[in-house]
Design a protein around this nucleic acid. Structure first.
Length: 547
DNA sequence: CGACCGACTTGTGTGGAGAATG
DNA sequence: CATTCTCCACACAAGTCGGTCG
């Protein structure tokens, strides 16, 4: 299998045969019933279908804070006007005079009604969804029937980027068949466009893995329909990724020695490269490509760090040479960290900061392309992101070794596993907003624990001397322990998201080996989807697997 | 080079199904 | 049996990185 996948990689073709049914298009717009009105300046006003549709997008978001934001409103209003008839355009001149509440109430009622539907109605919908899944959700790639990832075209709506996005509120336009490129093999049954329409193009490019693509109008980027993570093509790629990270493991000592040496280089660009690489390695920062200003939220990664994102403290409390990081990374998630660094790194950073303004680049002689070219020379296939994969996986393996005690119960082992996973999530800065119901659910759990404690103490009193004491007391004790561990796990997980690292950074063979070694049911670690995605690893890894 | 594009991976938030609970 | 809670699948945004072109 390895040889086969390698040969596939070398000739560049990803498949020989590809057949699918094409995408599921967004349902057409259904005009509002007559009694649901839009008001302008206090008076009801009937909108054209096109203008009404865009208005409904806004109405559906009325409860969100961002509809109050200036940029959102400005962008929405500008794009909305483009959909209006000239008459509407001349009438509607001020967004603050627009009243969408009746529309908003209507949609709320609709969703309420959906919840109240009878079992039969819900079943009917489920069956229809299942039918669509069966028809459009699978394709044939080479000799396999494979699950498709996202076979639905994204419906129109208002764009809501993350963080302070300059384009929030813009209209994401409806995608028509004429916008869509189909990719499949020549000798397959081509997907049919809906009656009376045609695809933009049907091509047969087996150097790529996507089945359908279209260009989105907000950033002008291309969107794709690709296979599900459980597919052969994704699985092999994933496996390859971890093999690259394992190769890094073999030479990481050499690379670390090298960049430490480069801290002393005569050349500025080499010093910058070496300090950046140190951050990427030590802090698991992302590479940090440049971004076009005004097109996206202002976020950075390692190479795009600016002077304003770090602070240097020669002394802080009892530590020397502390660097404080404070910046917005991917998805505008804040990265905040204080790290003591070696004197040489500190001196270099001082040098990089000389004569610069806060908004200047910290590494002005470096970008991701330069860095990756350098890495490529150090190891075949090495790029900045491999460090994240490597450090995440090696951390999991080390933490599992350190935290798992042979004699502890299965729930205790799972807590240990989650703690190891948590160490990685913290390294990678995978945060989440604490769930809205967090406090409540912690309270509920605490109530359960208290009850269990009471049960245990009454049981102890009543059963004094009885020969079942040991058995029942033991059971209750175990239940109590499990609840307490659940509470600990949940508390520690309050602001940490484990999913991303589990799915994208942790070599699944480490986890598979661990469950095999300790006889932990794999279902406790991976749910059904995850087991499907990692089927290759579950097949492959034995308990002695070493990353 | 550097801008731009294309293909692919990584990331968070959410809605709804199904489990748990009263 | 209705209500609440939990977790998963999904949506889709936002990264990385390599290639091409002028």
């Amino acid at each position: 299998a390895l040889a086969l996948s390698m040969s596939r990689a070398t000739d560049g073709s990803k498949w020989r045969f590809l057949e699918h049914k094409g995408p599921v298009l967004a349902p057409p717009y259904e005009p509002l019933p007559g009694h649901v009105r839009f008001f302008y300046d206090g008076k009801p006003m009937k909108l054209s279908a096109a203008a009404e549709e865009v208005a409904t997008f806004f109405a559906k978001m009325l409860d969100h804070e961002y509809t109050t934001k200036d940029i959102f409103r400005k962008n929405f209003y500008k794009d909305w006007r483009k959909e209006m008839t000239s008459e509407e355009k001349s009438k509607i001149t001020d967004l603050t005079k627009c009243n969408f509440t009746e529309m908003s109430e209507y949609f709320k009622a609709q969703s309420e009604a959906r919840k109240q539907m009878s079992k039969e109605e819900k079943l009917k919908i489920r069956e229809e969804n299942e039918r669509i899944l069966q028809e459009y959700g699978f394709c044939v790639m080479d000799n396999h029937k494979e699950r498709i990832g996202n076979f639905r075209i994204e419906p129109p709506g208002l764009f809501r980027g993350r963080g302070d996005h300059p384009k929030m509120g813009m209209l994401k336009r409806r995608i028509r068949p004429e916008d869509i490129i189909i990719n499949c093999s020549k000798d397959s049954k081509h997907p049919k466009p809906p009656q009376g329409t045609r695809w933009k193009e049907v091509r047969h490019d087996n150097k790529v893995t996507w089945l359908v693509s279209w260009t989105e109008n907000i950033q002008g980027s291309i969107k794709y329909i690709m296979l599900n993570p459980s597919s052969r093509i994704k699985g092999e790629k994933d496996w390859q990724k971890y093999e690259t990270a394992r190769r890094l493991k073999k030479c990481v000592d050499r690379l670390r020695a090298q960049y430490r040496d480069d801290w002393k280089s005569k050349e500025m660009r080499i010093r910058q490269r070496a300090v950046a690489l140190y951050f990427i390695d030590k802090l698991a920062l992302r590479a940090g490509n440049e971004k076009e200003e005004g097109e996206t939220a202002d976020t950075v990664g390692c190479c795009s760090l600016r002077v304003e994102h770090i602070k240097l403290y020669p002394k802080m409390d009892d530590q020397e040479y502390v660097v404080e990081f404070d910046f917005l990374g991917k998805d505008s998630i804040r990265y905040y960290n204080k790290m003591p660094v070696e004197k040489r790194v500190f001196k270099n950073l001082q040098l990089f900061l000389e004569n610069k303004q806060p908004e200047d680049d910290l590494f002005d002689r470096l970008n991701t392309s330069i860095l990756n070219k350098h890495l490529q020379e150090l190891m075949d296939g090495l790029t900045a992101k491999v460090f994240r994969t490597y450090n995440a996986s090696i951390t999991l393996q080390q933490q599992l070794k350190e935290l798992t005690s042979p004699e502890e119960s299965i729930p205790a082992k799972i807590l240990s596993y989650n703690r190891a996973n948590r160490a990685v999530a913290i390294l990678c800065n995978h945060q989440r907003a604490p769930p809205k119901t967090f406090e409540k659910s912690m309270q509920n759990l605490q109530t359960k624990i208290d009850e269990k404690q009471k049960q245990l103490s009454t049981a102890r009193k009543q059963l004094k001397g009885a020969k079942t004491e040991h058995k029942i007391g033991g059971l209750l004790e175990e239940q109590l322990m499990n609840l307490q561990m659940q509470a600990t796990d949940r508390e520690e997980n309050k602001q940490i998201a484990l999913g991303t690292s589990k799915l994208n950074y942790l070599d699944p063979r480490i986890s598979v080996a661990w469950v095999k070694k300790w006889d932990v049911p794999i279902e406790k670690i991976y749910n059904k989807t995850q087991r499907e995605k990692f089927a290759w690893a579950i097949d492959m890894a034995e308990e002695d697997y070493e990353f």
